[in-house]
């Protein structure tokens, strides 16, 4: 039997087809290894349950009222946390030699990066759905309905994609997927805890309130709450859009330049 192809060689995939194909691969990975989705969402889900029933009454009068406040923020926290998997996945691909394979195929060279981001969108959407479903079970009732929730999730994903560029850089710099993970907590914990995801910052000391006020995650949480409950402040949305644009404008070119440079 001949091993070689008998049909003529097709022209290599277009940038779009290559990106879609690599996005398909990212989805297959989630299908085959769903654990990588659950181990990062489990923590926020636990936080949701704990904060709602433990502190909900104290913080907002009743758990049911607190859930209305908390769920949009938890969606933010969950998605912001799993942005790190962009870097973990990329680092794994590099260390396992898969990137050599991709880079030796005559496709548009950044396709593996954009394919990974496409897979990330799918991952973020799945995670958001899980948190919101849990919220609905616990009594979360977004006043703005499906449209509001979809708009909020879209805004969160946009911000998450800008963070992903930072993880791409980390993923290319460090030696192993584990070190990407470790370095992520140094950034993500302060970023999500130093925000108004869990509590209204009114009771915080002044210096902390100042930190919370400039944290883009605070504005993202405010915007998400506003969009989901139908009382959004335009300035929060603008704040998030500008923050995403700035982070992307700074880190995407660095990431792509590093990616083009040989290893």
């Amino acid at each position: 039997m001949s091993l070689l192809a008998t049909t003529p060689r097709p022209p290599a995939a277009s940038p779009w087809a290559a990106t879609l194909t690599l996005g398909w691969r990212a989805m297959l990975k989630i299908k085959h290894v769903p654990f990588q989705l659950f181990d990062v969402t489990a923590f926020p889900l636990m936080m949701t349950l704990m904060f709602t029933y433990l502190f909900g009454g104290a913080l907002a009068g009743s758990p049911r009222e607190y859930v209305q406040y908390l769920i949009p923020g938890i969606v933010v926290q969950t998605i912001v946390f799993i942005t790190v998997y962009t870097g973990v996945g990329l680092n794994g691909d590099i260390t396992k030699g898969l990137f050599d394979r991709f880079r030796s195929v005559p496709i548009w060279q950044p396709a593996p990066i954009f394919g990974a981001l496409l897979g990330d969108v799918f991952r973020y959407t799945t995670a958001a759905t899980m948190v919101i479903l849990l919220g609905l079970v616990m009594g979360f009732r977004p006043a703005a309905g499906v449209v509001g929730v979809v708009a909020a999730v879209a805004l969160i994903i946009l911000f998450a994609l800008s963070l992903s560029w930072m993880w791409i850089i980390v993923g290319m710099k460090v030696q192993s997927p584990e070190s990407v993970m470790t370095s992520s907590f140094l950034l993500l914990f302060p970023l999500t805890m130093g925000s108004n995801i869990f509590v209204d910052p009114r009771t915080m000391p002044g210096w902390l309130r100042a930190v919370v006020a400039v944290n883009p995650v605070t504005h993202l949480a405010d915007a998400s709450r506003g969009l989901m409950h139908g009382n959004v402040a335009a300035r929060d949305v603008v704040w998030v859009l500008v923050a995403s644009a700035v982070v992307t404008a700074v880190f995407a070119p660095i990431a792509l330049r590093m990616y083009h440079r040989e290893r």
Partner: peptide, 11 residues
């Protein structure tokens, strides 16, 4: 899936 992936990239 591995081979489909590479075959797709090759067009």
């Amino acid at each position: 899936e591995n081979l489909v992936l590479v075959a797709r990239l090759f067009g």
